[in-house]
């Protein structure tokens, strides 16, 4: 009996949690006005892809989709390279000022990124990067959280592997490239998902740093579209689907790594 109650509760709450997505998906395939009815309907009748056509053919959302995709991939590539190098150095090298540097980085994790936005905008404007891809890539090159996560992981790699490679004549960079990176793939995948989803979903900074319709990422384009289409739920739902589906797919495929990453991030020193 207790068991059935438990299942009943879990099923109802799961469905409630997912209802916004069901409705989003259903409404996105409806004709204009079909989603503005009482009581709400979830099944499109008739089924139509007109909203997606408007989105891609008239409103040129494809361009925004490409912006989001290219930026998320580029940021992730740089981010993984930069943080893995630094994290490895913190884990396996002795150097002057290591402890101080480490503690400074650790304590500055509390500084919210919003504090940097004004000067960062001025700096990038001065460099001529505002309203270009560079304005998004540059602040995403590295962050302290990523360095720590990599460091955490690299510490557990046995020194003997590194020594063995060194005896065989490998240079420091070769060791990083051929020994460390392959072993660190799980944590790299984790960080790659964080970075990809983070860049894809980000709103405030792209809203500030990108100023032309054609440069907008999907969330900025969507928020802009919302201003003119407050009364078009069907169109806005199609826009939301286009924005949300890629991240859901990335997550579903790689969820094991994502969940592990959250747990790793919650382990304190």
């Amino acid at each position: 009996m207790k068991k059935y109650l438990l299942y009943g509760f879990l099923i109802i709450t799961s469905v409630l949690t997912l209802i916004p997505f069901f409705w989003m998906l259903g409404a996105s395939f409806m004709l204009d006005g079909k989603a503005s009815v009482f009581p709400p309907v979830f099944i499109p009748e008739p089924f139509s892809i007109i909203q997606y056509k408007v989105l891609f053919e008239r409103l040129n959302v494809f361009r925004n989709f490409i912006n989001s995709l290219v930026l998320s991939v580029l940021v992730t590539l740089f981010y993984i390279t930069f943080t893995s190098m630094a994290g490895y150095a913190f884990a396996k090298y002795r150097f002057k000022g290591k402890k101080v540097l480490f503690n400074v980085l650790l304590s500055s994790m509390i500084i919210p990124s919003q504090v940097t936005m004004l000067p960062l905008f001025l700096l990038l404007k001065y460099m001529g990067f505002i309203n270009t891809y560079m304005a998004i890539i540059i602040p995403g090159l590295a962050n302290i959280f990523g360095i720590f996560l990599i460091r955490q992981y690299c510490i557990s790699i046995p020194d003997s592997l590194i020594e063995a490679a060194r005896i065989e004549g490998a240079t420091d960079f070769q060791i990083y490239r051929k020994v460390i990176l392959p072993l660190a793939i799980p944590v790299l995948v984790t960080l790659a998902i964080f970075s990809f989803l983070g860049t894809w979903n980000d709103f405030l900074w792209p809203l500030i740093a990108l100023t032309d319709d054609s440069m907008y990422t999907l969330p900025v384009a969507l928020s802009n579209l919302m201003l003119e289409h407050t009364k078009d739920p069907e169109l806005m739902m199609a826009g939301s689907v286009v924005t949300v589906i890629p991240v859901i797919i990335v997550f579903l495929v790689l969820q094991k790594y994502y969940i592990k990453g959250i747990m790793m991030g919650s382990v304190k020193e």
Binding site: T81, F82, T83, M85, A86, Y88, A89, F90, Y93, R94, F95, K98, L101, L105, S108, I111, S113, V115, T116, M117, L118, P119, L120, L122, L123, I138, P139, L141, A142, N143, I144, I147, D172, F173, Y176
Partner: peptide, 23 residues
Amino acid sequence: AYFFLAPALSAIFIFFFLPVIAA
């Protein structure tokens, strides 16, 4: 070590720490 640290730390210094001080 400095070679490995340089890219990430310069990015963090120029595009995070400097802006914090500037702000």
